[in-house]
Design a protein around this nucleic acid. Structure first.
Lengths: 348, 348
DNA sequence: GCATTTAGGCAAGAGTCCTTCCTAGAATGG
DNA sequence: CCATTCTAGGAAGGACTCTTGCCTAAATGC
């Protein structure tokens, strides 16, 4: 708190600001003449001309060879050179998706593979030289500092002992961001303070506060398996143990047997247990709404909402919009890639 | 996410940056010659001279009349004029504290009064013209948008129906920031991801994530009274109800009877209940440590830590450093006051 | 064929930063 | 007591960046 950091005034600062305007305009427009850039940024034509001259000399923008047609003098189109790509990947037990995203936000290549251990192969398939950075969604808890998957008690790693950063390091020449799939799904919702509760084979929750997913110290915030809640006979019980007590786990595993659960008549007991967890979420995170996703979360939204409405404090529940965890991962990758390009071109 | 906001390059930007450097230096040093400011900021003497000329003309800095003594030419000391004050107040059922803080971080006036309803009077006592802003700590849940106290189920307002912003509005000519005392206490700890659990007559918790207290949508994040936990016979029970079941509440109230509690032999039951709440905190916030404060929280840290250590996931507990909720409130007020002075002087 | 339109360049002006040098005045030391 | 040393402040000059305004070249449309 209170660390005031004031940049020194300098003409270099102004110059880099102009350059940044030019680069970001070309990221939006793909190509533009100096006059078009001036109009789009609100800066004057001579300023843009100077900036383009600098950036051309350093190779940060290039003359595409194309020329305007139409009335008036022929203009020269400028564009960004091949600026590298970002890798966006999704890892689940059902398979891997790898995508290459360019600085315009275009998905320029895509590959899928059946097993999570084929991450490297899928990434290599969409590679075209080293990636400038990677953003990965994984269906397991993630350590926010190392990017490695974290084994929590009673929750075997769905993806096995895969070391994501190590698997990608040879292909990526920059930062590798890894986060949980539930957190990525939450980032796609346009709310500032809410929680995203995922109820499927695994249990998960993302807490969004002040517009950002809060990951906590190690990155496993929202791993709700051990929250104490109401079990079968009103007994206090950890959330994950409720499924054991009801015989709704898959054989020799702590994973929930979803088909069996959906076919069972345990609506009420489970809704009560979920309502207990929701009480903890509301108490600690104070969300505006709780978005409920996952196969049985969505199917049983009704009884869950009914049980939760009995609680002394409650908030509205809403089904998750059918979203893809890659949407937010792509957006993050694009933002990081653009920032990397701008800072590479403006820093010296 | 991804909203890139780039400031336009302009010479005015540089000028305001120089002015800000000068102003912030004078806030630290109280008075300085142009040469001293130049040395402190790293900017050149002519630049500082220009800035001081501008700021003197607008009245944002003044010649104090003092002159340097010592070898060399006599220098002119400049300083900030009377720049207004910030009000810092603390409200508890035991009484009110009001302080006036100036732009140097000095407490220039202080008043106390026995009842919370004397907020206006205490504030008026330390006033010297209108305050530029106010920062208030209140021993009740606070709505982060309105600054009003929030009545939650089973938790009567300790301070009554006091409307803090309305009480202060006539004295304050700017923003009024109100927050819970537990949140202020947490802000005084130098950690980025942790929770602060307060166990006294009331129950409270602050969640600090990524270096900031997270208040949630309405501002009542951390109000843990309704978290489901383990009650007397292993029954699932809301935290606040545990005290009712054990007969540890004050008469006709939901407040905890602390002397009775400390004299009771309910260590184990209560430690188990607290451990259940800690499980929820760890699951949802993933803190590095949990700082435990409040009269019986500190006294019973041992049994609580013992019970919590049985949980499948746990983090270290630590007693709260004997802190004053006003420390962080003062720091916030000072930062806001300085920002206000800088922006008033640099904007036009 | 000529007015219109448009990209880009040039020139001038204002403003901010810096480095370097100069000056006035005060304390220090022989 | 006087030369020396030290320091705050100012002035000069150069380097840049921004803007406005004007000019030129080339293509279109009537």
């Amino acid at each position: 708190m209170g660390v005031v950091e004031t940049t020194k005034p300098s003409l270099e600062l102004l110059r880099s600001l102009s350059d940044e305007h030019v680069l970001r305009t070309l990221m939006r427009e793909r190509r533009a003449t100096r006059a078009e850039i001036a109009a789009a940024t609100g800066l004057s034509k001579p300023t843009i001309s100077e900036s383009v001259k600098r950036l051309s000399a350093s190779g940060a923008v290039v003359d595409t060879g194309e020329r305007t047609t139409g009335r008036g003098r022929v203009g020269t189109y400028y564009a960004l050179p091949a600026s590298g790509r970002a890798l966006v990947a999704s890892l689940a037990s059902t398979g891997v998706v790898a995508e290459a995203v360019d600085v315009y936000g275009e998905i320029v290549a895509r590959a899928t593979a059946p097993g999570a251990d084929e991450l490297h192969g899928a990434a290599q398939e969409v590679a075209d030289g080293p990636f400038r950075l990677a953003v990965v969604s994984a269906a397991d808890p993630v350590d926010r500092h190392t990017g490695r998957l974290v084994a929590l008690p009673d929750a075997p790693l769905e993806l096995g002992a895969l070391d994501v950063p190590a698997a990608l390091a040879p292909l990526v020449d920059g930062p590798i961001t890894v986060d949980n799939d539930v957190n990525w799904a939450a980032r796609a919702e346009p709310l500032r303070d809410f929680a995203y509760l995922f109820l499927g084979e695994g249990l998960g929750c993302a807490v969004v506060s002040d517009g950002e997913v809060r990951r906590g110290h190690t990155g496993v915030a929202g791993e709700i398996a051990h929250v104490v809640t109401v079990g079968p006979d009103g007994a206090a019980m950890r959330f994950t143990d409720v499924f054991g007590a009801l015989g709704l786990r898959r054989a020799r595993s702590t994973a929930i047997d979803v088909p069996k659960l959906l076919a069972s008549d345990a609506h009420e007991t489970l809704a009560g247990a979920v309502a207990g967890v929701l009480s903890a979420i509301v108490a600690l995170a104070d969300p505006e709404v709780v978005v409920v996703g996952g196969p049985w979360g969505r199917a049983w939204l009704e009884p869950i909402a009914h049980a939760f409405a009995q609680a002394p404090r409650h908030v509205p529940l809403r089904p998750a919009t059918v979203g893809d965890e890659l949407v937010a991962a792509r957006a993050t990758a694009l933002e990081q890639l653009r920032d990397a390009v701008v800072s590479a071109a403006t820093q010296r």
